[in-house]
């Protein structure tokens, strides 16, 4: 049943880098499927390949072999420019260090991905305002990142990730740079996104408390899935 609804399907993916003359295998025949609307956490020690896996799923990188399907798109075979277009429409990104453009306001940062899509200015404005409202920053539209707290910046990051209404949201250590209180707020917000907007979220983290918020946690080690934990929806909320 889960297979049929899966939005993300990773089939036998290998990924290796060459460092000098040495070949480093990061992912070794990894398979995975994520049903639509799931909040999935990826955990593992550094070098386990969790970020690489996330990059493959988000279309930032292509596997050495194997397939990555997102919905009906085989993204592992896409060219770089196809991937870029695909990402704009289908993936929202949340980063550890927020990665907002320092000279642009919160509003303008959130607007950035929409500039690549064809839509009227009015619709664009509506979407940006909605996204910022959703993260609770309606009163900070014209503030620059430097004028916002870390937590607020990450909210802008989240607004930017959801503004295009993507199929998939990927987050790489979204709370890694935040204090406990802000981290908690952010995780709560992500939980809401998943529940209320039915967003599929894949989050890399090494923080067990963060992982607790996810419906399922996958543990990676040396490029392989070693352990899986499921939580009931009740614990997640």
């Amino acid at each position: 049943m889960a297979e049929a609804e899966a939005i993300v399907r990773v089939n036998g993916v290998h990924k290796y880098f060459t460092r000098g003359s040495e070949r480093v295998d990061v992912l070794q025949g990894l398979s995975l499927s994520v049903p639509n609307g799931e909040f999935l956490a990826l955990m593992g020690p550094s070098g386990s390949g969790k970020t690489t896996l996330l990059n493959l799923i988000a279309g930032l990188d292509t596997p050495s072999s194997g397939e990555v399907w997102i919905g009906s798109d085989l993204i592992s075979k896409m060219s770089e420019s196809q991937l870029a277009t695909w990402r704009t429409r289908n993936v929202g990104f949340i980063f550890q260090f927020y990665h907002l453009l320092a000279v642009l306001t919160a509003y303008e940062n959130v607007e950035l991905p929409l500039l690549l899509l064809s839509m009227s200015a009015a619709e664009r404005k509506q979407r940006v305002l909605t996204a910022l409202d959703l993260v609770g920053l309606s009163d900070r539209l014209h503030h620059r990142p430097g004028q916002l707290s870390g937590g607020q910046q990450q909210r802008v990051g989240i607004a930017r990730a959801i503004v295009t209404d993507p199929t998939l949201i990927v987050a790489d250590e979204p709370t890694g740079d935040l204090d406990a209180k802000s981290a908690d707020d952010i995780l709560h917000l992500m939980g809401e996104l998943q529940r209320e907007l039915q967003k599929t979220i894949i989050m890399v983290t090494h923080d067990p408390k963060a992982a607790e918020r996810a419906g399922r946690t996958l543990h990676l080690e040396k490029g392989k899935l070693v352990h899986e934990e499921r939580r009931s929806k009740a614990t997640a909320s």
């Binding site: 420019s81 990402r87 990665h99 991905p113 690549l116």
Partner: peptide
């Protein structure tokens, strides 16, 4: 550099 990276990830082309 980081700005460039973000733009590219958001889907901006080279």
């Amino acid at each position: 550099i980081k700005d460039i990276g973000v733009l590219r990830i958001l889907g901006y082309a080279r």
